[in-house]
């Protein structure tokens, strides 16, 4: 069942385009040091090269400190997507593990995990993260990953718990049990592959939630600190020049929106592929 879901996804043009955009962004982030035309922190001439409009020399223009915006967006991808991917992996892994634990073990473990989810899901995430970040002063990107990821596992845990409980009732699991397979073997070999598509939806949605969160934090000066470039703090630098130097804002925003939009489309198409209803419509 899961295998045909992946095949339907690969047949879906919108999903392929969205996956391609995300893949290209990831590739750009990995290769940034080699493909960026300039040093992202170098300020060659803060007077003559200040706020230069896009040209062959500087395809995305330069910022108020004469730094090359293209190079900063590429290097920013390393930080922004790195933080986002790290936080996403952390939250999805944590959520899947806790959700699975709650569903498979049940009893008081389920009670504790479900209770915790119910309690924590009411917390305004951005607010709490802002309060924490501000309290501890500035944080390294690693701490950002821990904070954003550590506060985002709730929805994944919910989804995985619900899906697991559903699958635990199904006949193939009962059959495997009757054959004497252990709980953990069933979890690993049957349940996890069965809910993998749902987990992928959760991951895509987490990514779509986390990228703007990092951007927002950096934009208010509480996230990634200069001179390290991130999409959020490039925007912060550009905010004052919105009408005079549009390129400062357009390119990092395009980067954020394209990646978030692609993650959202991927989540949508995955849902359609899971439902397998594309042919019915």
């Amino acid at each position: 069942m899961a295998a045909s879901t992946w095949r339907r996804l690969l047949d879906d043009r919108a999903a392929r385009v969205a996956g391609g955009v995300l893949g290209a962004a990831a590739l750009a982030a990995v290769l940034a040091p080699w493909i960026a035309p300039h040093d992202p922190t170098l300020q060659p001439d803060p007077v003559a090269l200040r706020l230069v409009a896009p040209s062959w020399q500087h395809p995305f223009g330069t910022d108020p400190f004469s730094r090359d915006v293209l190079s900063r967006v590429l290097h920013g991808a390393r930080v922004s997507l790195g933080v986002a991917a790290g936080a996403m992996l952390l939250s999805v892994t944590l959520g899947a593990a806790l959700g699975a634990l709650a569903a498979v073990v049940g009893g008081w473990v389920d009670g504790v995990v479900s209770g915790l989810v119910d309690v924590l899901i009411a917390m305004p995430r951005l607010l709490v993260v802002i309060a924490l970040v501000a309290t501890f002063g500035t944080l390294s990107p690693w701490w950002l990953v821990a904070l954003i990821g550590g506060s985002g596992w709730l929805t994944t845990a919910r989804i995985v718990r619900a899906e697991f409980r559903d699958h635990l009732q199904r006949e193939y699991v009962l059959a495997a049990r009757a054959l004497g397979a252990s709980r953990w073997r069933i979890t690993w070999h049957h349940l996890l592959p069965a809910v993998a598509p749902q987990l992928a939806v959760a991951a895509a949605l987490a990514l779509a939630a986390v990228i703007p969160l990092e951007a927002a934090l950096s934009f208010v000066g509480l996230g990634v600190q200069p001179p390290l470039a991130s999409w959020g703090n490039i925007l912060l630098d550009g905010a004052d020049y919105l009408t005079s130097a549009w390129w400062l804002v357009l390119f990092p925003v395009a980067a954020v929106s394209l990646t978030v939009g692609s993650a959202l489309i991927l989540a949508d198409r995955l849902r359609v592929a899971i439902a397998g209803e594309e042919h019915g419509e």
């Binding site: 927002a216 919105l242 009408t243 804002v249 954020v256 939009g261 959202l264």
Partner: peptide, 23 residues
Amino acid sequence: TLGGVAVPEFLVALLAMTWLGAR
């Protein structure tokens, strides 16, 4: 609506403030 979700709201705020407000 996809754009409305994908474009961070602080940026929409900034654009609205700059053009509808200041400009």
